[in-house]
């Protein structure tokens, strides 16, 4: 590895930062949207994590998701509150499983990868809420309808990511 950063390195950094800004913007937009339900968000910021997989690779996608949640919480004033812990757990679980699926399961397009992420996100949030805040197994009665909705939003987000990768020239 040479000492000097190459033009490609700079392009990678610039692309990472551009995606981070996009992700933070979507994160804040989502946080300020009218609530569709207590734990129901379309997960738009996750589209950026999906885009980062083909554009920047697995490691950059993980750092991007982590940075997005922390910076987004700074802007919305929820740092270290329950909201932050829940959204951090969801984003980390989704990103990790999407990264593993992206590497290990090449038969899935970004649509399938997004489904993995959506389900992981919802399950991780429930586990964290049950473990840290509510501590009642009855909480899981809420899970099926929310999982059904997360499959729907996951599919839509994956399709959006597919469209975007086409438009920016990854044929």
């Amino acid at each position: 590895m040479s000492e000097m950063a190459t033009l490609d390195d700079h392009r990678r950094t610039a692309r990472w930062l551009a995606l981070l800004l996009l992700a933070v913007g979507l994160h804040i937009f989502e946080a300020s949207m009218p609530n569709l339900g207590p734990w129901l968000k379309p997960g738009l910021a996750n589209i950026v994590t999906l885009l980062a997989l083909p554009l920047l690779g697995v490691r950059a996608a993980c750092t991007l998701a982590l940075a997005r949640v922390v910076i987004g919480a700074l802007f919305s004033g929820t740092l270290l509150t329950p909201t932050f812990i829940i959204s951090l757990a969801g984003a980390l679980a989704a990103t990790l499983i999407m990264a593993v699926a992206w590497q290990a399961l090449p038969m899935f397009s970004l649509v399938g990868i997004s489904l993995f992420g959506a389900v992981a996100h919802m399950l991780a949030q429930f586990v964290v809420v049950e473990a840290l805040f509510i501590q009642q197994h009855a909480l899981y009665y809420l899970l099926p309808p929310l999982l059904l909705l997360s499959l729907l939003t996951g599919w839509i987000n994956g399709v959006i990511a597919e469209y975007v990768t086409r438009r920016i020239g990854i044929r």
Binding site: P106, M107, S109, V111, G112, G158, R166
Partner: peptide
């Protein structure tokens, strides 16, 4: 091109 691209994005691949 990545390995899996659906021909129509909203349908996904068969695996999806």
């Amino acid at each position: 091109a990545p390995v899996s691209r659906p021909s129509l994005p909203w349908l996904g691949t068969a695996a999806d």
